Amino acid sequence: MAYRLFTGPDDRSFCERVSAALAEGYVLHGSPSAAFNGSSVIVAQAVVLPAAFASADAAVADAVEGLGIDGVGYEETIEGHA
């Protein structure tokens, strides 16, 4: 999975789960969040896998390049298809 969101009580188990994901190559995404549910603090931390996003970015770049309109202005594109 390219994106994971860990949630749970603010305890050792939560930290171990996030640490394990970091060891697998994930990186932290955004700041952690914390909330109080009336009895304990619940925390959340998102992590992302950079390689998955790099390949997605490359796929988007390839798709845009395949459109064949790189460097052509909007007006030229409209006139060429009118």
Rank of each mutant, 00 (worst) to 15 (best):
A59C: 00
D62A: 05
E79N: 09
V64M: 13
N37D: 15
V43A: 06
H81L: 15
T77N: 02
Y26V: 08
R4M: 05
T7K: 09
S13M: 04
E65G: 09
I78F: 07
E16C: 02
I78Q: 07
S19E: 15
S13D: 14
L5R: 14
P9I: 00
A52P: 08
A51G: 03
L28H: 00
E75Q: 11
L49W: 00
G8E: 07
E79R: 15
D10V: 12
N37F: 02
H81D: 14
E24D: 15
I78P: 04
D62V: 01
A52F: 01
M1Q: 01
I78A: 12
I69N: 06
G25S: 13
A21Q: 08
V41D: 03
Y74T: 14
V27S: 00
A58R: 07
D11Y: 14
S31P: 07
E16T: 05
L28T: 08
G30L: 03
S39R: 07
S55F: 00
G25R: 04
G66S: 09
V43D: 08
A46L: 04
A61C: 06
A23Y: 06
I69F: 11
G25A: 13
P9W: 05
Q45N: 02
G71H: 03
A58C: 01
R4A: 09
A34C: 06
H29L: 09
V43I: 14
G73Y: 07
G25E: 12
A59Y: 00
S55L: 03
G68H: 06
A58D: 07
G25C: 07
E75S: 08
A61R: 13
V18F: 01
C15W: 01
G25Y: 08
G30A: 02
G30C: 09
G66I: 10
A35H: 04
A44L: 07
Y3N: 06
V64F: 12
